[in-house]
Nucleic acid binder design. Sequence first.
DNA 1: CTGTATCCACGTTGATACTG
DNA 2: CAGTATCAACGTGGATACAG
Lengths: 117, 117
Amino acid sequence: MAAGARRGPYVCGIDAAMDVVSGKWKSLILWELNNYGARRFGELRRGLPGVSEKMLIQHLREMEEDGLVHREVYREVPPRVEYSLTEDGTSLNEALGPLGAWGTARRERLTIEQSGV
Amino acid sequence: MAAGARRGPYVCGIDAAMDVVSGKWKSLILWELNNYGARRFGELRRGLPGVSEKMLIQHLREMEEDGLVHREVYREVPPRVEYSLTEDGTSLNEALGPLGAWGTARRERLTIEQSGV
DNA sequence: CTGTATCCACGTTGATACTG
DNA sequence: CAGTATCAACGTGGATACAG
């Protein structure tokens, strides 16, 4: 998303939010950035095992367009770029809290069912 | 999702939750079912303008497999089927609350920016 | 180091028609 | 009414190679 004409008229707030977090790694990026503050491209890549450079930069760009992430470029040699959360990104991360808790509780429940029953 | 071998090992709770809500209409189905209680297939379809029968039944089946939705069949003529939220579905809907609020606030902010600035 | 550019596989979504 | 079946179109995600 984010590249301009993708967003439809939303039926409710969930739509608008989901539109912005949908993407395989976005919630993880939010999490990383929230825990570590500013992170460099390479650091993020190592922090998200399995992500490809293409997907990472793609998600990062979209999140930047969506005003979730701030991109700071340091013109040095070698080049350095740091990503950090904006206020919106931070508040989104907070709004994601209950969902994460629900998911964790669900995971535990499923694990118990599998082993116990 | 839900059809068996789709779910990977999750990095955090968000993953597990996102896996279950991802799908163009799922959050809306949750919303509909939460507001109206039990709903019939046709009612849901009319409540979700634009959804195709295939997508609706597909999402419903997945949500049933995920234990979010309960499907009650009444053997009548003509056939009647009612869908309702399970406890898990209800709690998921609650966990989605903050996210919806965030999305709504964001929408308002964007609207103001577009008209005002 | 931080990206870009291609090409490709796959899943999801959608339109349409048909069945019990 | 409540689905099922089929086919097509599209977007997302992934691998690899290359560039500033």
